[in-house]
Nucleic acid binder design. Structure first.
Lengths: 146, 146
DNA sequence: GACGAAATAAAGCCAAAGCTACATTTTTGA
DNA sequence: TCAAAAATGTAGCTTTGGCTTTATTTCGTC
């Protein structure tokens, strides 16, 4: 076993950076998911109700309420007591970006031979870790094979 | 068997399933990351010390200690006070699987035109959501272009 | 062998995201 | 109309994964 340690070797800081970026992505993943879902519901029904959000996200309604509270805190959504939830302009922009990225990830997976159903399932978690650079590469790949 | 009452529409339960699967993947992601890292350190240095684990994961040592405690609880690692951490047979198997999957994901990303550095960063978060079915598809895709 | 530095442990704080249980408001329909 | 049902709000518990601070143990070096 080689080598004594310094304060921080290159291997250490590189790995640490990777994990820190993954953690950062994870911390916004839920905001993205809820924003997208609320956007969907606003389109389908004109407004997003807590009960519908909860059902679609597969959580109980207090959990959905907490998530919406965080969205409101971040300026992505607005709501009044006992009324539906609506996205702000920022929230809508986020929802659109997320939806577009989701679609690209699913398309890439299916293009690589993943069954559509599996592609949907896996994309749900993967998409949050797809950086802009990777997204561009995905889009270029899809364009090239059309 | 009597028909159980349907409280969810198809759209609701499908979406909920997707999110629940993504959440399940996330709950094992940290176990996978730590197991892989401990495996790496065991190979490099013969044992994994808490300080080294913490440095590479980009966390403080109490955080690493907690993660190791969870690994031990799950039967993936063993350790004695003030001594290094070692993976069990199960832990080693997990680490190997994770390492192999990580490599495949990075290779697929680079094959799609993602710069190597970015591929490493994005793979770190994405890999935990790559199901066996998708992994097989990735491997087939890579084989096909060799 | 002893001492100081480094490593590890232990305790406790915080936020997030899930839950249950219960209270309140709104909606519905007889 | 008004009582029951549904929706929403609120409180509080649990786990997880971060953190800091403070003790304790081990280790390297003299």
């Amino acid at each position: 076993m080689p080598q004594t340690e310094q304060t921080c070797t290159a291997a250490e800081s590189e790995a640490a950076d990777r994990f820190n970026q993954a953690r950062a992505a994870q911390s916004v993943a839920i905001l993205e998911d809820y924003a997208e879902m609320i956007g969907d519901l606003m389109e389908e029904m004109g407004e997003a109700r807590i009960t519908d959000i909860a059902k679609r996200m597969g959580v109980t309604h207090p959990t959905a309420t907490k998530a919406v509270a965080r969205l409101k805190r971040e300026g992505l959504a607005v709501s009044r007591p006992y009324r539906g939830v609506f996205l702000t302009e920022d929230g809508l922009a986020l929802a659109d970006r997320v939806r577009a990225r989701h679609r690209v990830v699913v398309e890439v997976l299916t293009a690589l031979g993943v069954p559509p159903e599996t592609a949907e399932l896996d994309a749900e978690g993967m998409e949050h870790h797809v950086s802009d650079v990777t997204l561009k590469a995905f889009e270029a790949f899809l364009d090239a094979r059309r």
